[in-house]
Design a protein around this nucleic acid. Structure first.
Lengths: 66, 66
DNA sequence: TATAAATATGTATTATAATACACATTAAAA
DNA sequence: TTTTAATGTGTATTATAATACATATTTATA
């Protein structure tokens, strides 16, 4: 699962929930710029920041064997 | 899935594969210190770094609904 | 089609992840 | 045991993620 795929999932989920990038960034407590970059596969977020975003969207990280 | 849980999974998998921290760090191309911190739930790695470690261990990140 | 809302990007600064090095502690082997 | 390998930690430095701000651009709405 690449950064691009992660960004796509976040974006799809956010749109599905009908939230703007600005609102989600505010809810999560991160900058709009960071969220935009993550959704577009730019940027290289930390686990903490990624988890904050996923939690706000009702998503969670998992690790599985390939 | 918290940083601590992620660290535990990485450590368990590494031990299962019979690799030392030093060797895994070299294989992955990161510092021993970073790996130690991640395994112990200290540190806050980026997706890239986490993915490099997981890939070397035959593991992968996934995102799922809660 | 104007206007506003939402999304996206360039640049500079700040916060912090990653590293290097030394050294301590713990576990394993001789 | 003692010697070595493996794991863990403190501190300083470097690399880079996160942010702030201004400003496009694209999309939606009046």
């Amino acid at each position: 699962m690449t950064k691009i795929e992660i960004g796509q999932i976040i974006k799809e989920r956010r749109v599905y929930l009908g939230i703007t990038q600005k609102d989600l960034a505010d809810i999560v407590g991160i900058s709009l710029r960071s969220l935009v970059d993550i959704e577009n596969g730019n940027g290289n977020p930390t686990i903490d920041q990624l988890n904050k975003i996923l939690n706000a969207l009702g998503l969670t990280l998992k690790i599985s064997t390939v």
